[in-house]
Amino acid sequence: MFATCTDPSQLEGLSWLLCYLTSGKHMLFYGSFLVVLALMLITAPVALAFGFGGALAARSHITPLRWLGKGYTAMVRGVPDIVFFLFVPVALDQGLEYIRHLWKCPPTGQPVWANGEFNVCAAAKIPLSTSPQIWHEAYGFALAVVAFSVVFGAFAANVLYGAMNAVPRAQLETAEAYGMTHRQVSRRILIPQMWTYALPGLSNLWMILIKATPLLFLLGVEDIVYWARELGSTKSQIYAYPHPDWRVWYFLGLLCYYLAMTRVSEIVLSRLTAKLSRGQATMAGEAQRKMAGGAGA
């Protein structure tokens, strides 16, 4: 990065540290923070969509659909999330490749799963092994997003299901009294009103999502934990910047990062809660009304 860094063995003290912290590998480390942020920002809406589908299914009048929705949420609740993280990407990847295999490959007469190998023809690989590395990484990342979304979608379904039931019956009845159809009531009243009731649960979920991101490296994405372990481990003279085992410092850095993320999220979410509860028939809304009334009087 800097011109002075061309020969690290000559450097000492602060300038060594400065060069060390700006080496190419560290740049990848800093970049991985963005990967983690991107994962959270992409997972949140996708998981919300999963959750929405799950909650609507669980409220459905069609019995098999209702079982599906309830089964999905109950399933994820009963099983540790890492089991899903270890299982979903592999299953999804093999499943997708198998479908593509049926579609693209000439019949070989050989089973796809044989002797512990998973063999699909070259045309069925996702992405193709000739495609540039970046696509392989993007695909791995997409699988991670799906794995996270499946787990967090189930949690979100739970929260949204509860929130939909929490919307005061009177509000829905009023809408019906205005002659709205079932669908209109859902779209115009139930779903907009649901959010204030869902927000505490969803904020909680966001906090959980933040804290689940270190598990990304289990899914094979080069995240901050991967780089912290790689950078921190003992570096012999073969490296440009030799140092002893520094992993504990890198992990302390990660600890601070996560604490900061939690704090910032707490502040933002509490503001959002205050905003959404304005004028609502809830305790928080009531408290706001009292405050405003007191100030006016």
Partner: peptide, 25 residues
């Protein structure tokens, strides 16, 4: 186990588009 993969920013030797014979090491 696919995509439990930890790819680095490893450089493709030639920029990747050579047809059939790309071997992933």
């Amino acid at each position: 186990m696919k995509k439990l993969i930890l790819t680095t920013a490893a450089l493709a030797l030639c920029t990747g588009f050579a047809m059939a014979d790309t071997v992933r090491m």
